[in-house]
Design a protein around this nucleic acid. Structure first.
Lengths: 223, 223
DNA sequence: ATATTTTTGTTGTAAAAACAACACTTTTTA
DNA sequence: TAAAAAGTGTTGTTTTTACAACAAAAATAT
């Protein structure tokens, strides 16, 4: 079966055999599709038919509001899904776009087939739902994390909250962030130039050092 | 069985019989507890043992950061749970407080017992997990909603984004918000006095009208 | 390898927000 | 029902932000 190895390595299909996977692929009416960097995997406003699973590569969930402001809602890595909450909420249209940030392989699964109890009684469906639960819980954590950062009043506080959290996750004061500067500004919902200015200021003050996506946080200076 | 009616009316236990509920109460090592308005149901930083379910009343999930700023993360209503994501993430301590906003009845369920496959093979456990999934998905939606509001640049935009969303949900331009003014400021992460000032300004401009928690949105004026 | 596009840092200016202080109102409590 | 506490609206001041514009650097495409 094509792509079985990729499926096997995700949290959602991890415990299924090749045969079971094949049955589910049929049951969920799946399609595999590849995307180049910067291609749209999902377009905000399009009719929502599928829940997607990233099998290779990565993507950004982006939202454009009525004034044209772009916000990066969250990032998707290998094994992540997008659309589960919306499917449960019964949304008809995608509320965000998903843009590939690398060459990517994506699995599209029919949302009704995936979240509703299976008439075909395909053996592993219940287990997949259980696995999905863990993924949705993780997505929740990501959102809470982001909320924590952007709830801060000043740009500096937002930056420090974000950088500290990445630093903590990587268990080091030296770490790489998964955004470029422009994207980080969109993620933190601040003006890019103002943020860039604030970063330089923090560098001058000896709070942080950085080059491209590489950061060093002088945590001893953060009283 | 005590409180069976309350359990029955929640999404998570909705499909279980009294006997099954009783078994699960034992299996999840549950405790029922009542709270007065403004009492702490959960204290940020306390050891996390339980996932809670609101059976009567309501509560606010609040987070206090290192600078003392209070943020209302989300609201919990009857049938809502708190702590599922943290349990999956393996958090040891509660990351937020939950404060009763009414006289409330709360069910405490041991987190390990709830989220792990059941050795006792208690019949309905799988179904409960599936129901839980829907709740976590809903909580996800709430967070995305909030994120949408506070990602806006100005206080006015935040207010309009929030008020529009409440208006939409209540399908009317006249609606009641579930916050007082101070709480709304904490929810939107803006300064209370500045927000109060902005609200008056919007009232003067004829964009909105309000009194206490009652709002009227003149949507025709919002270009 | 060169041209083109995108990203980045910097600046000045105008707008908006936070903060602090205070009087007044409403709600809670004893 | 009186006293205390909590919530609200308003104001002036200071700090911070957004916005616009531009040059330089880096990344991408041809």
């Amino acid at each position: 079966m094509e792509y079985f190895e990729e499926l096997k390595s995700t949290k959602i299909f991890n415990s299924a055999t090749e045969f079971e996977c094949q049955a589910m692929m049929f049951c969920f009416k799946t399609r595999f599709k590849t995307f180049d960097k910067n291609q749209s995997i999902i377009k905000q406003g399009d009719k929502m038919e599928d829940i997607i699973l990233i099998l290779k590569g990565s993507g950004n969930v982006e939202n454009v509001d009525s004034l044209g402001n772009i916000s990066i809602v969250m990032q998707l890595k290998k094994g992540d899904v997008y659309g589960v909450e919306s499917a449960y909420a019964g949304d008809e249209y995608y509320k965000d776009s998903v843009i590939a940030t690398d060459k990517s392989l994506v699995l599209f699964m029919n949302k009704h087939r995936l979240i509703n109890p299976c008439e075909n009684r395909c053996k592993r469906h219940d287990l997949v739902i259980k696995n999905l639960m863990r993924l949705v819980a993780e997505s929740n954590i990501k959102l809470l994390d982001k909320l924590n950062h952007i709830s801060k009043k000043t740009t500096r506080e937002k930056l420090l909250s974000y950088l500290s959290s990445v630093s903590e996750k990587s268990k080091s004061n030296y770490f790489e962030i998964p955004f470029n500067i422009t994207e980080l500004a969109n993620y933190l919902s601040v003006d890019r130039s103002a943020m860039s200015f604030e970063l330089s200021k923090m560098k001058k003050e000896g709070l942080i050092d950085y080059d491209k996506r590489q950061f060093h946080l002088f945590s001893n200076k953060l009283k």
